[in-house]
């Protein structure tokens, strides 16, 4: 579960073709480019800039708040492995709340097909393969849906560049993104992409009736390995329920030597 809702593109043939094409057309692009092409080009550029991170581990804390102000805390450790030519593999291990401590969630995300997901339940020592149809469902009761924190692939959306706009004192591209995968809870998202760093600063989500549902604000970007930007804070506000979730990231470590062997269904039992 890579948590940057910016699309990252993998070394597929399409990407190579598109990159070559875009490079060739670059000098003329400004005039010839349609809004759809420009939206896609931004997504590809963002993906390219995040390519090659290899793997990372991080700690994630979610602070859930309802309208009355009741708070609830989640602590999760995340490990992600970049996979060439396909979506990432990721493993989430729950530390809090205590009753789900040790629960592990393994995802093989794919750009075209549905993701593969397994859940490990420590009390029963049972590994369950679960349906990945549940993209729109809340992750751990939070305002983040599974699809919001899943590995983001360029192919999962179609794009349309809307305008340039200043946000939080930074210049951004405003791009509309329409999910191409099935069972999304959204008709579309509108993302504000930082023009300098190609990372999202804000995303607005529209529900199936195209009503404004949620706003995600991302802040505290830090650069790792002199290349990869990661937000420290992701604040999701649900406009329809008044609930909020503040997702904070800590202890990012890149290229820790994770491999396919750390993302196997059959070793979930010893995932710690």
């Amino acid at each position: 579960m890579h948590a940057t809702p910016v699309s990252r593109y993998k070394n597929s043939r399409l990407s190579v073709c598109l990159s070559a094409l875009l490079a060739a057309l670059a000098p003329y692009a400004a005039s010839a480019e349609t809004p759809e092409e420009k939206g896609l080009a931004i997504a590809i550029e963002a993906d390219k800039r995040d390519y090659g991170f290899g793997d990372f581990e991080a700690k994630m804390t979610m602070l859930l708040k309802n309208k009355k102000g009741d708070e609830s805390l989640r602590n999760i450790r995340i490990r992600t492995l970049e996979v060439d030519g396909d979506g990432d593999k990721s493993l989430s291990i729950f530390d809090e709340p205590a009753d789900v401590k040790g629960t592990a969630f393994l995802t093989y995300s794919h750009s075209k097909e549905p993701d593969d997901q397994w859940l490990y339940l420590p009390a029963l020592k049972r590994v369950k393969r679960i349906s990945s149809k549940n993209k729109s469902g809340p992750f751990m009761g939070s305002e983040f849906a599974y699809e919001d924190i899943a590995s983001q692939e360029v192919d999962k959306y179609t794009y349309k560049y809307l305008r340039d706009e200043e946000i939080d004192g930074r210049s951004a591209f405003v791009v509309e993104q329409v999910p191409t995968y099935e069972h999304s809870g959204y008709t579309r998202r509108v993302a504000w992409i930082d023009q300098e760093r190609y990372v999202p600063l804000q995303v607005v989500f529209y529900d199936r009736k195209d009503a404004k549902l949620k706003t995600l604000s991302m802040s505290g970007y830090k650069q790792y390995l002199d290349k990869y930007w990661r937000a420290e804070a992701m604040y999701m506000e649900n406009h329809q329920t008044g609930k909020t979730t503040l997702l904070s990231w800590a202890d990012y470590a890149f290229r820790t030597g994770l491999s396919d062997a750390d993302f196997r269904k059959n070793t979930l039992k010893r995932a710690r």
Partner: peptide, 12 residues
């Protein structure tokens, strides 16, 4: 079989 997002809620 899971009905996801029952009656436009978050429930399954």
């Amino acid at each position: 079989y899971t009905f996801v997002g029952l009656f436009e809620t978050a429930q399954d």
